[in-house]
Every structure is written in structure tokens, then in C-alpha cells.
Design a protein around this nucleic acid. Structure first.
Length: 306
DNA sequence: CGAGTTTGACCAGCGC
DNA sequence: GCGCTGGTCAAACTCG
């Protein structure tokens, strides 16, 4: 992903050079405008408009190329990740030492969980480093990790997932300046499911939700079952009805329609499908491409003098 | 007034 | 054994 970012910035630089050159063409024309007639001024306007159109087309082409490059790199990295996942799936698992997850200290786990977030964002990391946290997750049964993208300006740690949670603690951890909130399922008195919610240290727009245990009751179907909270609810996401050991980044602003069964799909395939669907929904979404274009043009403006 | 949240205190595991 | 850290408890507090 780092390489993509680098490429993005270099492309943006190229764009800025192009836009800079183009934006100076009409200025040159206006310097000579004293000697031209009204008919000529109209044709000058047309020339300017054409230049503008050319510039827009050029930018459009470059953006399309960039998007295509991003998609290509994305699929390459995705297949690479799937290879790593399948390797770790065949190696790990049964070799785990028999320890009680409840009594085991979780400091190292929380650290590797944060590494997972950075792994997702930094594709330059080696496969060995990538394997380790995945193995740890496979050792721990009934642990679900979900990443929810939220508005970074919102500071609350309320994640609306359809279940009813009671907060029983909050702690600032060593690896992350953002506090971690501890919740218990209060939907049923017998339900022992817990969840930890913490913003990612690297990207505070991403909230890391860790579920421990399995619900002993049916999943509530209505959003009205969610807890009544004082703070504003900042995130909604598709409820995970069955614990899985994969990480899912779910963009709650554009809640993707999942046309596959979460509970019936194997974890690796599930992740692949999720990633695939999210990627396609993003690339197809004109809003996303428009936002991308506006972000890049903003960068162009910041590079171009005056 | 009851349910939920906040927050400081406490406990237990781990490394040195 | 001691200190550090994550996880939990529970009294005080808030809100509808």
C-alpha cells in the first residue's frame, strides 16, 4: 500500500505540472488581448474553453489511469494476502499450546492486533510479520475482530451492531493513546460475550472492535434493540452473527450490500468476497471517484504556484 | 427511580 | 519480589 501511496503522490505531482502548464496558457493569451477585435475575443474564448476542456480531459485520463493502477495493485496485493492467509491456515491452528484464553495475559495480543491494522495499511511489510498475528488469532477461538470506519472527529466509542451492550470499563493502553472501552452483552443475562472497542492508533477514523465469545441468544433484528446512549451513535455496521477469525474493514458511511451469507462462508473466502465487493463498489461508485478527483485536484492546486 | 456510564481502585499475569 | 500493564469491579454519577 505504501508503494501505491508513493505512486499516487508522484502521479499527483505529474498532474500538477500538467495543470500548471495548462493554466498558464490562457494567461499568455490575455497579455496580447489589447490588439484583438471583439470577433477575435470570441474566438479567444473558444480557444480558452477548448484549452480548459483539453485540460479536463487530460486530468480525467490521468485519474482513470491512476485508478486503474490502484485497482491492479490492489488485486495483486489482495491475491498475495490470500496466499499468505492460506499458508498460515495450513500451518497454524493445531500447534497451539493449550492455555486458558481467559487467564492468559493479552498485552502481546493487543499489540499484534494493532499490527494487523498497520499490516492492512502497509503492504510493504514482510509475510513473516504478517503471519504471526493471524496465527495468534487462530489460536484464540471465538474471537472476532471487526474494523469499522467512522468519522475521526467523533470521539465516542459506541458501535451500533444490533446487540445491547453494557459498558463496564475504560482504559488507556500503552500502545494506543485512544482509550479502550470494555463492554458486556446485556441482551441476555446468560450471555457472556464481551467486546473491546478502541480507535486505531495509526488511523483514528478506524475503530477496532474485538468480540470475545459467542452470543447465547438470537441476534436482535431491529436497531431499536441497540443501547440507549448519551453520546451520539457514530457507527453502524452489519452485525456479525457468527464469530470469525478474520478482520473486516467495513465502511459504515457507504454500507456495502453483502450478497453472500456471512455464516455460511469460510473465513478466507468470506474475507476475499468482502474485499472484492467493497473494492468493486468503491470503483463503481461515482461519489467515490468524484471524491478522489476532488482530493487530487486539491493536491494539484496546493502544488501549483499562486 | 432504574438503567447505564464514568472512573479510580484493585487484581493478576508477565518480564526483569 | 517488584513494577508495569491489561482487565475487571463497584461506588458515584447522569439521564430519561
Amino acid at each position: 500500500m505504501e508503494s501505491i501511496t508513493m505512486e499516487q503522490s508522484s502521479l499527483s505531482l505529474d498532474l500538477s505540472v500538467g495543470s500548471h502548464w495548462l493554466s498558464h496558457q490562457p494567461m499568455k493569451a490575455t497579455r496580447n488581448s489589447n490588439a484583438i477585435t471583439s470577433g477575435e475575443s470570441k474566438s479567444k474564448e473558444v480557444v480558452n474553453l477548448r484549452a480548459e476542456l483539453n485540460r479536463m480531459n487530460e486530468e480525467n485520463e490521468r485519474l482513470s489511469e491512476m485508478l486503474q493502477n490502484m485497482c491492479e495493485k490492489y488485486s495483486a496485493l489482495q491475491s498475495q494476502m490470500m496466499d499468505i492467509m492460506s499458508e498460515s491456515g495450513s500451518e497454524g491452528g493445531s500447534a497451539a499450546p493449550e492455555t486458558s484464553p481467559e487467564k492468559k495475559r493479552k498485552r502481546h495480543n493487543s499489540k499484534t492486533q494493532n499490527e494487523i491494522v498497520s499490516n492492512a495499511m502497509d503492504q510493504s511489510i514482510s509475510s513473516d510479520e504478517c503471519l504471526k498475528p493471524i496465527k495468534d488469532d487462530q489460536i484464540k477461538s471465538k474471537i472476532t475482530k471487526v474494523y469499522v470506519q467512522t468519522n475521526p472527529s467523533d470521539t465516542s466509542l459506541i458501535v451500533k451492531d444490533g446487540y445491547q451492550w453494557r459498558k463496564y470499563g475504560q482504559k488507556v493502553t500503552r500502545d494506543n493513546p485512544c482509550p479502550r472501552a470494555y463492554f458486556r452483552c446485556s441482551f441476555a443475562p446468560t450471555c457472556q460475550v464481551k467486546k473491546k472497542v478502541q480507535r486505531s492508533a495509526e488511523n483514528q477514523s478506524i475503530v477496532e472492535v474485538t468480540y470475545e465469545g459467542e452470543h447465547t441468544h438470537n441476534a436482535p433484528t431491529s436497531q431499536s434493540d441497540t443501547p440507549k446512549v448519551k453520546n451520539n451513535v457514530v457507527a453502524n455496521f452489519v452485525p456479525v452473527s457468527k464469530p470469525v477469525t478474520d478482520e473486516h474493514i467495513i465502511n459504515i458511511k457507504k454500507k456495502p450490500h453483502l450478497d453472500f451469507d456471512l455464516s455460511a462462508t469460510p473465513p478466507a473466502e468470506l474475507q476475499y468476497q468482502l474485499v472484492e465487493q467493497m473494492a468493486s463498489s468503491l470503483t463503481k461508485d461515482p461519489g467515490f471517484t468524484a471524491a478522489l478527483a476532488s482530493a487530487i485536484s486539491g493536491k494539484i492546486l496546493s502544488f501549483s504556484p499562486n
